[in-house]
Deep mutational scan, measured.
Amino acid sequence: AIERGSKVKILRKESYWYGDVGTVASIDKSGIIYPVIVRFNKVNYNGFSGSAGGLNTNNFAEHELEVV
Rank of each mutant, 00 (worst) to 15 (best):
residue 16 Y to N: 05
residue 67 V to M: 07
residue 34 Y to N: 11
residue 63 H to G: 04
residue 38 V to I: 04
residue 38 V to R: 00
residue 64 E to G: 01
residue 12 R to Q: 04
residue 11 L to T: 04
residue 13 K to T: 08
residue 63 H to N: 08
residue 13 K to D: 03
residue 1 A to M: 13
residue 52 A to L: 11
residue 37 I to T: 14
residue 54 G to T: 09
residue 56 N to T: 12
residue 9 K to L: 09
residue 39 R to C: 14
residue 37 I to M: 14
residue 25 A to K: 08
residue 50 G to R: 00
residue 37 I to L: 14
residue 48 F to Y: 10
residue 8 V to T: 02
residue 33 I to Y: 09
residue 50 G to W: 06
residue 7 K to I: 12
residue 8 V to Y: 00
residue 26 S to C: 14
residue 13 K to N: 06
residue 23 T to F: 07
residue 44 N to Y: 15
residue 46 N to K: 06
residue 18 Y to N: 02
residue 32 I to G: 13
residue 55 L to P: 07
residue 24 V to L: 01
residue 57 T to F: 13
residue 23 T to A: 03
residue 31 G to H: 12
residue 64 E to T: 02
residue 53 G to F: 08
residue 36 V to L: 04
residue 56 N to S: 10
residue 40 F to G: 01
residue 6 S to H: 07
residue 10 I to A: 01
residue 9 K to F: 05
residue 22 G to H: 02
residue 37 I to H: 09
residue 26 S to T: 07
residue 19 G to A: 05
residue 67 V to A: 05
residue 45 Y to G: 15
residue 58 N to W: 14
residue 59 N to Q: 07
residue 62 E to W: 14
residue 48 F to E: 15
residue 14 E to S: 12
residue 22 G to C: 06
residue 35 P to R: 10
residue 28 D to M: 08
residue 15 S to C: 09
residue 42 K to Y: 06
residue 58 N to G: 15
residue 67 V to H: 05
residue 1 A to Y: 09
residue 24 V to N: 00
residue 23 T to N: 02
residue 64 E to C: 05
residue 51 S to C: 15
residue 29 K to F: 09
residue 15 S to K: 00
residue 27 I to G: 01
residue 8 V to I: 01
residue 10 I to F: 03
residue 23 T to L: 05
residue 42 K to N: 11
residue 19 G to L: 12
residue 66 E to M: 10
residue 22 G to D: 01
residue 16 Y to I: 08
residue 14 E to D: 12
residue 31 G to V: 07
residue 1 A to P: 13
residue 54 G to H: 08
residue 61 A to R: 03
residue 12 R to D: 03
residue 6 S to T: 13
residue 64 E to Y: 03
residue 29 K to V: 10
residue 14 E to H: 06
residue 53 G to T: 13
residue 67 V to S: 04
residue 34 Y to P: 06
residue 57 T to M: 14
residue 33 I to H: 11
residue 52 A to C: 15
residue 50 G to Q: 11
residue 51 S to K: 05
residue 30 S to L: 05
residue 34 Y to G: 05
residue 29 K to P: 10
residue 60 F to T: 00
residue 32 I to F: 07
residue 30 S to P: 04
residue 54 G to D: 07
residue 47 G to E: 15
residue 29 K to E: 11
residue 6 S to C: 14
residue 62 E to Q: 09
residue 23 T to K: 04
residue 7 K to G: 02
residue 39 R to K: 14
residue 14 E to Q: 11
residue 31 G to D: 15
residue 25 A to H: 10
residue 55 L to K: 10
residue 41 N to L: 10
residue 33 I to R: 13
residue 3 E to Q: 13
residue 63 H to L: 04
residue 39 R to H: 11
residue 43 V to E: 14
residue 6 S to M: 14
residue 50 G to E: 14
residue 1 A to C: 14
residue 10 I to G: 01
residue 23 T to M: 07
residue 45 Y to A: 15
residue 68 V to C: 09
residue 50 G to P: 11
residue 31 G to W: 07
residue 32 I to P: 08
residue 44 N to P: 10
residue 30 S to M: 04
residue 34 Y to C: 11
residue 48 F to I: 13
residue 33 I to K: 13
residue 50 G to M: 07
residue 35 P to A: 12
residue 23 T to I: 11
residue 2 I to K: 00
residue 56 N to C: 15
residue 31 G to I: 07
residue 33 I to C: 14
residue 30 S to D: 05
residue 59 N to T: 08
residue 43 V to M: 11
residue 1 A to H: 12
residue 20 D to T: 10
residue 12 R to T: 03
residue 21 V to W: 05
residue 42 K to E: 09
residue 12 R to N: 05
residue 15 S to F: 02
residue 17 W to F: 06
residue 38 V to K: 00
residue 38 V to G: 00
residue 4 R to W: 08
residue 1 A to R: 13
residue 17 W to R: 03
residue 35 P to V: 12
residue 49 S to Q: 11
residue 20 D to S: 09
residue 17 W to T: 00
residue 3 E to G: 11
residue 26 S to D: 14
residue 61 A to T: 03
residue 49 S to E: 15
residue 31 G to P: 05
residue 32 I to A: 11
residue 54 G to E: 09
residue 45 Y to N: 15
residue 51 S to Y: 07
residue 39 R to G: 05
residue 28 D to T: 04
residue 65 L to A: 00
residue 25 A to S: 11
residue 45 Y to F: 10
residue 30 S to G: 11
residue 63 H to K: 06
residue 7 K to L: 13
residue 24 V to M: 02
residue 1 A to E: 10
residue 20 D to I: 11
residue 27 I to T: 03
residue 11 L to G: 03
residue 8 V to N: 01
residue 3 E to S: 13
residue 27 I to Q: 01
residue 45 Y to M: 15
residue 25 A to W: 11
residue 24 V to K: 00
residue 58 N to T: 10
residue 13 K to I: 08
residue 60 F to L: 02
residue 40 F to W: 02
residue 65 L to N: 01
residue 56 N to I: 08
residue 8 V to E: 00
residue 20 D to K: 11
residue 5 G to F: 04
residue 61 A to V: 04
residue 25 A to E: 15
residue 28 D to L: 11
residue 30 S to H: 06
residue 15 S to L: 02
residue 44 N to A: 08
residue 10 I to S: 01
residue 17 W to M: 02
residue 54 G to L: 07
residue 25 A to L: 15
residue 10 I to V: 13
residue 42 K to R: 09
residue 3 E to Y: 10
residue 33 I to Q: 12
residue 32 I to V: 14
residue 7 K to V: 11
residue 8 V to M: 01
residue 60 F to G: 00
residue 31 G to M: 10
residue 28 D to H: 04
residue 27 I to S: 00
residue 24 V to Y: 01
residue 68 V to S: 02
residue 65 L to D: 01
residue 59 N to S: 13
residue 59 N to H: 12
residue 63 H to V: 09
residue 58 N to C: 15
residue 11 L to I: 04
residue 16 Y to Q: 09
residue 13 K to F: 09
residue 21 V to K: 01
residue 46 N to A: 06
residue 1 A to Q: 14
residue 22 G to A: 03
residue 34 Y to F: 10
residue 60 F to K: 01
residue 36 V to N: 00
residue 39 R to T: 13
residue 29 K to W: 09
residue 4 R to N: 09
residue 47 G to P: 14
residue 6 S to G: 04
residue 45 Y to H: 15
residue 3 E to K: 13
residue 48 F to S: 15
residue 47 G to M: 05
residue 54 G to M: 08
residue 55 L to G: 09
residue 68 V to I: 12
residue 45 Y to R: 10
residue 38 V to N: 00
residue 43 V to T: 11
residue 50 G to D: 14
residue 28 D to C: 09
residue 28 D to W: 04
residue 67 V to F: 06
residue 67 V to C: 04
residue 47 G to K: 07
residue 61 A to S: 07
residue 4 R to K: 13
residue 5 G to T: 02
residue 44 N to L: 14
residue 36 V to D: 00
residue 27 I to D: 00
residue 6 S to P: 03
residue 20 D to V: 12
residue 45 Y to C: 15
residue 37 I to F: 09
residue 6 S to A: 12
residue 58 N to H: 15
residue 17 W to G: 00
residue 22 G to T: 04
residue 3 E to V: 12
residue 10 I to K: 00
residue 18 Y to D: 00
residue 31 G to F: 12
residue 64 E to H: 03
residue 45 Y to L: 15
residue 52 A to I: 12
residue 44 N to V: 09
residue 51 S to V: 12
residue 14 E to M: 06
residue 31 G to Q: 13
residue 27 I to L: 06
residue 48 F to P: 15
residue 63 H to I: 09
residue 33 I to N: 12
residue 66 E to C: 09
residue 33 I to G: 12
residue 11 L to Q: 04
residue 18 Y to V: 03
residue 2 I to P: 04
residue 65 L to R: 01
residue 40 F to H: 02
residue 59 N to C: 15
residue 43 V to S: 10
residue 19 G to I: 06
residue 2 I to A: 02
residue 11 L to M: 06
residue 27 I to F: 07
residue 3 E to L: 12
residue 40 F to T: 01
residue 59 N to I: 05
residue 28 D to Q: 06
residue 48 F to D: 15
residue 59 N to Y: 13
residue 56 N to E: 08
residue 58 N to Y: 12
residue 18 Y to L: 02
residue 15 S to V: 03
residue 1 A to F: 09
residue 62 E to I: 14
residue 22 G to R: 05
residue 42 K to M: 05
residue 20 D to Y: 10
residue 51 S to R: 01
residue 65 L to P: 00
residue 46 N to M: 10
